[in-house]
Every structure is written in C-alpha cells, then in structure tokens.
Design a protein around this nucleic acid. Sequence first.
DNA 1: AGCAATTAGTTTGACCATCAAAATAATAAA
DNA 2: TTTATTATTTTGATGGTCAAACTAATTGCT
Lengths: 138, 138
Amino acid sequence: MHPLKNLNSLIIEFYDKLSSWEQSVVKETGYTLAQVHTIEVLGSFGPMRMKELAERLGITTGTLTVQIEKLVKSELVERHPHDDDRRSILVGLTVAGEALHKQHNEMHLQLTQDITQPLNQDELSVLTESLRKINQEF
Amino acid sequence: MHPLKNLNSLIIEFYDKLSSWEQSVVKETGYTLAQVHTIEVLGSFGPMRMKELAERLGITTGTLTVQIEKLVKSELVERHPHDDDRRSILVGLTVAGEALHKQHNEMHLQLTQDITQPLNQDELSVLTESLRKINQEF
DNA sequence: AGCAATTAGTTTGACCATCAAAATAATAAA
DNA sequence: TTTATTATTTTGATGGTCAAACTAATTGCT
C-alpha cells in the first residue's frame, strides 16, 4: 500500500469538512460564498486593484466587476481611483465590510480552537510548523 | 494576540491553495468541478442512492438529477434500479468512471507526496494523527 | 511628439450549478 | 384501504463563471 494513502484521505476529508463548514457559516450571513470570500481577501490583505483581487480570488476581472458591483450596492465595499494609474481602481472594505470580515474571522478562529481541542502543546507546535512547510510547497 | 491566530491563517492558506490546485487539475480533465467531485465520491464510497449521494455532496437531489443525467451521457456513471425499493435508484461508476476516479486519485496522492516532502518521519506521524483527531471534531 | 502595443477594467452572451417548489411514483403507517 | 411519508424528477429563477469584444489609459518605440 502507498505509504501516504492514509494521510491523503485525511487531507481530503479535512478539506471537505472545512468546505461544508464554510458553506453553512456563510449562508447564515445572508451573503453568498463568493461575496464573503471577496470580503475575506480584502480584509486580510487590505485594499487592492481589481486585477490583483481577481488573481487572488482565482477569477477573471470580468467576473469580479459584477461581483464588486453587488458588494458596492450592499455597502460592504468602496471603489476609489488609483493615484498613479487612472486605468486602475482601488477596491477596499467599508466600515460595514470590515465588521463582516472581523465577524467571519472570529468564526474561523473559533473553529480552529474547537477542532484543535484534542491536541496537546507538542502536537500543536508540530502541526503549525508542518503546515507552514506544506504551504510553501504549493 | 490570540494563541491560534497563526495556525488559523495557515489552515486558511492551505485550504485556498488546495482549492486552486483542485480547480486546475479538474480543468485538465475537461469535466467540471461538480462532475469530478461526484466521481470522487462514487469512487471512494461505491454505488449509492441519489438521496445519499446528494447528502454526501451537500446538494439537493434536484440538482443531482441534472448532474447525473450529464454524467450518464458522458458514460462515466450508470443508473440501476434498487432491488428493495422501486422508488430508489442506485448510481455507480462505469469502467470509464472508475478510470477517471483512479487517475484523479493518483493526482491527489502525488500532491500529498509533493507537499509533505520537507517533513521528516516524526512530523508525518504527528500530522497524520493530528488530522485524524481534527476530523473527528467537526 | 506621435503612433503602436500593452494593460486595466467593463460589458455581453452563453453555460453550469444551485435551490425551492411542484409533480410523480412507490412505500409505510393508520 | 386511505393517508402520510419518502425518493426522485421537473421547472423556473438566480448567481457565478468565462471568453471575447470593447473602452480608456499607459508605456514603448521611432
């Protein structure tokens, strides 16, 4: 048997469960998954241009234009002209957007706390360090 | 600062990267994400009823009906009557479906191998055991 | 400086995924 | 047997997505 078959299954299971969790948590906000994801990125990385945001979200700028339009109407996001390049637009969170981001982030923190409950300090350290290494390998 | 803030960020980063990876790997198959996901579940758990499959996929049976229709046309999936309950339908993979599942699974295994490259045996053990515990907490 | 090529963003048309609700058919319960 | 429940399908509406065509601004070249 493949030595990593087990770990592989655990990773897939973890991914699926995280996915379901996110889905249900997002549903409660009344916004869509794509909208909350956009808010998450803007909240974590701060204001940025459309092109950069689209890249981080893994969607085209065409899709993003429509998405941002809705978020602006919902007053979660603001558009500002870019200082150096008049073709560009800076997209950032409003106060309400920041609040939603903060709230969502706290849900994530709570989940992280909940699911790592059974781990001891050693396991937590190794898990954290392993994840750091793993993320660099992508 | 919140003690798990770091681990939380690493989990989110890992999730996002895995998500991108899956997206690009699926795109190469020529099938959609939803289709491959359905194949993955049927491949891992074997044939099952529509209702059960919909539950595992986290979608309604209405959505699934349309999905399965396409997969049958693509000859990846077969429908068979359920022996005990004539309301039910057993959905399972065809030979071509099995092949796609196997191929996709091997991509996952290869990824797992690649990203865990920098971990030593101890770290691998702890990671595996931690993930097992974490998955039980959802 | 002036023209061409590139770049940022928007718009549009076409799919796909999804859900809720209504419809159909079979089973279970009273 | 009648009624209620369950499994599945169908339908209509909405949202996310892309590719391609378009506009406007910038950069590069001569």
